[in-house]
């Protein structure tokens, strides 16, 4: 049987023989390139990932009070005119005699979901994103998106 590698003998022999003044540089060249790749990749090569955190958090948003027609600006709804100690803009039920700056404006509570875009160098990225449960995926736009964190199953073990 003909040796399928016989035609590639020149490949197997030559590169390691390349030398400058007897100094064989190919292995060291590759070693240098590999070391630079590790350093650049590990510490400077930054990779982005968008993460949607399914964590509901509540934010208080100010609510504009509904103004009854004809009421002068700064007057809360339902406030009777002429009460002693009642300042303009004080909400209904406010204590008489309190200064206007201490009064609480009307708010409503809104539930939101966090979306965070982070970048990290490859070392941190591998550790924190690639190797964690759930992993990451490409979305329709080709962006890297972190999947919902799963506590079931080891990372990248598609059983």
């Amino acid at each position: 049987m003909k040796n399928p590698l016989s035609g590639l003998r020149f490949l197997s022999m030559r590169p390691a023989r390349w030398s400058i003044f007897g100094f064989r540089f190919v292995p060291l060249l590759l070693f240098g390139v590999g070391t630079c790749t590790i350093l650049y990749g590990g510490f400077f090569h930054r990779l982005p990932v968008t993460e949607t955190i399914e964590e509901e958090f509540t934010v208080a948003e100010p609510v504009e009070p509904e103004m009854p027609m004809g009421m002068p600006p700064g007057m809360g709804p339902g406030m009777p005119f002429g009460l002693p100690g009642m300042a303009p803009g004080m909400p209904p039920g406010g204590m008489p005699g309190m200064p206007p700056e201490d009064s609480q404006p009307p708010v409503r509570f809104v539930t939101k979901i966090k979306t965070v875009e982070t970048t990290a160098n490859e070392l941190e990225w591998n550790l924190n994103v690639l190797m964690t449960f759930g992993g990451i995926a490409l979305n329709e736009k080709g962006e890297l998106v972190r999947l919902a964190v799963s506590t079931e199953g080891p990372a990248f073990c598609p059983t």
Partner: peptide
């Protein structure tokens, strides 16, 4: 996994180059 995510894993390539060389 990096191919699936369309990224170049420089760290892994570097380790393979260093050890292989």
């Amino acid at each position: 996994n990096s191919c699936a995510l369309h990224i170049i894993p420089l760290l892994a390539i570097g380790v393979l180059l260093v050890v292989g060389s």
